[in-house]
C-alpha cells in the first residue's frame, strides 16, 4: 500500500510539474514585461499559445524524415521522465532511484541531441546553425553542471537526488561555502541550458542570433506545442534542481506523505509530519514566484552576449564549480 501511495505521489508530482510549467513561463514573461514598463500578456498566455498550436494543422517540410516527426514526442517523454526524478514537492519518489544526477544530465543530453538532429534534418542553414550552436553551448555547460553536482554529492556522499535533498535539508542552516560557489555556477549553467539571456534571447526574431529558436524553426502546430511545453518543463526542472541543491527546506521528506494520507496515522504522526505535504506545495509556489521574478530581473538587466563570448561565460561557470569542489576539500573535510 505504501508503494502504491508513493507511486500515486510520484504521478501527482509529475502532473503538477507538467501543469505548472507553462504557468511559470508565463510568470517570468509577465515579470519581464512589468520590468520593461509594459502591461504584459498575462500569466495564462502560454496555455493559450499551447491551445492555439494544438488546434492547428502541421506543416512539414517535404524532406522531413521520421526522426523529425518523432523528436517532439521523444523530447516530451524525456522531460516527463526527468520530472519524475527531480524532487519538487516530495523527496522519496520511487522513480528517483532509477536515475541519479548523472543520469539526469544524461536525460537532458539525450533530449538535446535529438533536438539537434531534428534541426539538421530539414537541411536549412538556420537549422544546422542552431544545432551547432546548441551543441557548442551544451558541451561547455555539461562539465560545469556535473561539477556542481559533484560538489553537492561530495557533501552528501551520494549522487542520488533524494539523499542529497535529505542531507542538505537536515543540515540546519549550516553554511557550506562550496555550495555558494556551486550556486553561482549553477545559475550560469541554468541561463545557458534554458536559452535565457545572456546566452540566447528567447523572444528574439532575428534568426542569426538564435540558438534554441533556430532549432525549432521548421516545427509547427502540435509538434511545436510539445517542444515549447518540453522547454518550459526543462526550465521548471532546472529551477527545481536549484532549489533541491541550494534551498532544500520545505521539501517533504520520506514518510511525510503516508502521514498525510493515511487517516489512521493522524493520531501517531506529529502535526509537522502530517502537514508536510501541503506545506511543501506552498513553499514550492513561493519559491517559484521568487525564482521567476529573479530570473526576469536578471534577464532585464543583462544584455545578450555574442556567441563566442558564451565559451568564456561557461568557462567561468566551470571555474566556479571547480573552485567550489576544491573549497570543499580544503574547508569542509
Amino acid at each position: 500500500m505504501t508503494l502504491a501511495l508513493r507511486i500515486v505521489s510520484q504521478l501527482t508530482q509529475a502532473l503538477i510539474i507538467l501543469g505548472l510549467a507553462p504557468l511559470l513561463l508565463g510568470w517570468v514573461n509577465q515579470c519581464r514585461a512589468w520590468l520593461q514598463n509594459k502591461s504584459g500578456a498575462g500569466i495564462q498566455q502560454p496555455y493559450q499559445v499551447l491551445n492555439k498550436l494544438f488546434a492547428k494543422d502541421a506543416v512539414l517540410a517535404r524532406n522531413a524524415s521520421v526522426l523529425f516527426r518523432a523528436t517532439p514526442y521523444i523530447l516530451f517523454g524525456c522531460m516527463t521522465l526527468a520530472a519524475g526524478i527531480v524532487p519538487v514537492v516530495a523527496s522519496d519518489l520511487p522513480f528517483a532511484r532509477a536515475a541519479d544526477v548523472i543520469a539526469l544530465v544524461g536525460i537532458f543530453a539525450l533530449a538535446r541531441v535529438f533536438l539537434a538532429l531534428a534541426a539538421m534534418d530539414v537541411g536549412t542553414a538556420f537549422g544546422t546553425l542552431g544545432a551547432r550552436r546548441e551543441m557548442l553551448i551544451a558541451f561547455l555547460a555539461e562539465p560545469a553542471l556535473l561539477m556542481v553536482f559533484f560538489t553537492a554529492s561530495l557533501i552528501s556522499q551520494s549522487t542520488s537526488l533524494n539523499t542529497i535533498v535529505a542531507t542538505l535539508a537536515s543540515a540546519r542552516l549550516v553554511i557550506y561555502p562550496s555550495l555558494a560557489f556551486a550556486a553561482a555556477a549553477f545559475l550560469m549553467v541554468l541561463l545557458a541550458e534554458n536559452a535565457r539571456i545572456p546566452i540566447d534571447n528567447p523572444a528574439t526574431h532575428l534568426e542569426l542570433t538564435m540558438v534554441h529558436e533556430a532549432m525549432i524553426l521548421e516545427y509547427s502546430a502540435r509538434h511545436l506545442a510539445l517542444i515549447e511545453w518540453a522547454s518550459s518543463i526543462k526550465l521548471m526542472l532546472y529551477i527545481a534542481i536549484g532549489f533541491a541543491l541550494f534551498v532544500p527546506w520545505g521539501i517533504a521528506g520520506a514518510g511525510d506523505l503516508t502521514a498525510f494520507v493515511s487517516v489512521w496515522n493522524w493520531g501517531e504522526a506529529s502535526a509537522g509530519q502530517i502537514l508536510a505535504y501541503p506545506i511543501a506545495m506552498v513553499f514550492l509556489l513561493m519559491k517559484l514566484v521568487v525564482a521567476g521574478a529573479g530570473l526576469a530581473l536578471l534577464e532585464t538587466v543583462s544584455a545578450k552576449m555574442r556567441i563566442f563570448r558564451a565559451p568564456e561565460f561557461l568557462g567561468t561557470a566551470f571555474l566556479l564549480a571547480v573552485l567550489g569542489m576544491l573549497i570543499h576539500f580544503l574547508l569542509e573535510s
Binding site: V59, A64, I74, G77, C78, L81, A221
Partner: peptide, 27 residues
C-alpha cells in the same frame, strides 16, 4: 518510462487533437 510517455503522448495528442498534416517547402 520514456517509451511509455512518448507513445502515450503521441496517442493522446492524436486522440484529442486530430489535425491534418501537409507538406510544403521548408520554411
Amino acid at each position: 518510462v520514456t517509451v511509455l510517455v512518448t507513445v502515450g503522448s503521441y496517442l493522446l495528442v492524436h486522440r484529442y487533437f486530430r489535425r491534418g498534416t501537409r507538406r510544403a517547402d521548408a520554411w
